[in-house]
Amino acid sequence: MEQHFDLVVVGAGIVGLAHALVAARLGKRVVVVDRDAQANGASVRNFGFVTVTGQARGEVWRRARRSAAVWNEIAGPAGIEIVQRGLTLVARRPEARTLLQAFLETEMAEGCTWHEAGQLANRLPGQGEVLGALTSSVDLRVDSRSAVPRLSAWLQAAYGVSFLRSVAVLAVETGRVETSAGALRADSVVVCPGDDLVTLFPDHFAKAEVTRCKLQMMRLADPGWRLPSAVMSDLGLVRYLGYAELPESAALRARLQAEQPAHLQHGIHLIVVQGADGSLVVGDSHHYAPTPDPFGREDVDALILEEFAKVFGQAPPPVLERWTGTYASAAGHSLVAAPMPHVRLVTVTSGTGASTAFGLAEEVVAGLFDLSPGVAA
């Protein structure tokens, strides 16, 4: 006999788990189907940095704020450690300082403060070429390698969410999902395939011109000091739209193009986060292709570590691990489509799944089950 669920979620990355959480909180019977035995994609190959500050103004920024609130709600019950809180976004150039001062005048700067370089000793050990920094209290960081599996286990234990792993989804239609382990009946289906752009509903990905982005990241040895928050630098100001869309970003972009053209060419910006064991996760770069090659480049890693040295005023610690990751990429924050009745296709196309998925999922689930706005929150 075919099993029946209120909601079938295809994909057990953070976007799929966010939809499972929202539906389970509404009392829905949920099953999550994933082709891998464990989390293996973009959801565990990232910083675990839940970034609110700097997200695109308006809808995306509000989703990020809501998602951070959900992380704070579920972390304790799910046994997920919030390893760091806040952000230290350093300005290495006067143009970056001017841009951040303009940002502080917007509604997006709630929870943010400017500090001159001499006020950063507690936030930036080994301070290098830094004029000052914007600090934020609203961002947070989890260890994605442990947080994603713990979230899955908690959904199963606390809400009875079922998981079918090492199971491929072969076809989706209204009310029915065909898998390699048999068919499932469902009132509704949410397909969250990450950067698998060809297995299910490829025409929607093609129409939205979705491609894939490859990034390079590293884990560095414990430097012997502690970061209370994540650290970013000038390069991030021209990638994160909350800053980059302000008029003041033009002068910074021009200077970066003159001084760090190779960094911009490879889509490099600096994010540094620290784990409970003291090791640092550092990255990253951005290269785009329908099928990116799987190989990391030493010259790209060297550019990332060069920016690290400029910010911290010291050589980076030894590299313990290197890896690449890929995610779906397109203009805008996400692709949300209704390929057929009671079916939604949802992919975050901005590399911000950990930062925005919970807020996005509440919107999608509310629409799928005809709920009033805010009911799914």
Rank of each mutant, 00 (worst) to 15 (best):
L264P: 01
P202W: 08
Q216W: 02
D36Q: 15
R322N: 06
D196H: 04
F205L: 01
R219T: 11
D284F: 00
S188M: 12
Q156K: 15
E245T: 15
P318W: 02
A147C: 02
R253Q: 10
A91C: 01
P290V: 03
S152K: 11
T51L: 15
D196F: 01
E81M: 10
P341T: 00
E178A: 15
P247A: 04
R65W: 11
A328W: 04
A315I: 07
R35G: 08
L124D: 13
P292M: 00
R150A: 15
G242L: 01
L241N: 14
R35P: 09
R219C: 06
H269W: 12
V32C: 03
R35Y: 01
V9M: 06
G79S: 01
R85T: 14
G13M: 03
A330R: 10
I271F: 11
G79K: 00
A117D: 12
W323Y: 10
A183C: 05
H266P: 09
L335N: 02
V15H: 01
D299K: 02
G296K: 00
D222E: 01
F49H: 15
E209N: 14
A357W: 03
V50Q: 03
K28S: 07
A37R: 14
L227T: 01
L120T: 06
A244T: 07
V300Y: 03
P223W: 04
K28V: 00
G11L: 04
G48F: 05
S136W: 00
V169L: 06
L371R: 05
E178T: 13
D36G: 11
I271R: 02
V375Y: 04
E107Q: 15
W114H: 10
V142S: 09
F312H: 10
F5S: 08
R344V: 07
D203N: 12
G325M: 09
R255C: 07
H333M: 14
G175R: 07
Y240M: 13
F369Y: 15
L235V: 05
E248G: 04
T324G: 14
N46T: 10
E173K: 12
E129Q: 13
Q257I: 08
L368M: 05
L124W: 04
A258T: 11
G118Y: 01
T88Q: 06
E259V: 07
V300H: 05
R176T: 07
V198I: 13
V346F: 05
V148G: 06
S249D: 09
A181M: 01
V343C: 12
H286F: 13
D299Q: 10
R65A: 14
K214C: 09
Q127W: 03
V190W: 09
V44Q: 06
V281Q: 03
A39M: 01
D277F: 02
E306A: 14
L371I: 08
F205N: 07
C213Y: 02
H266G: 02
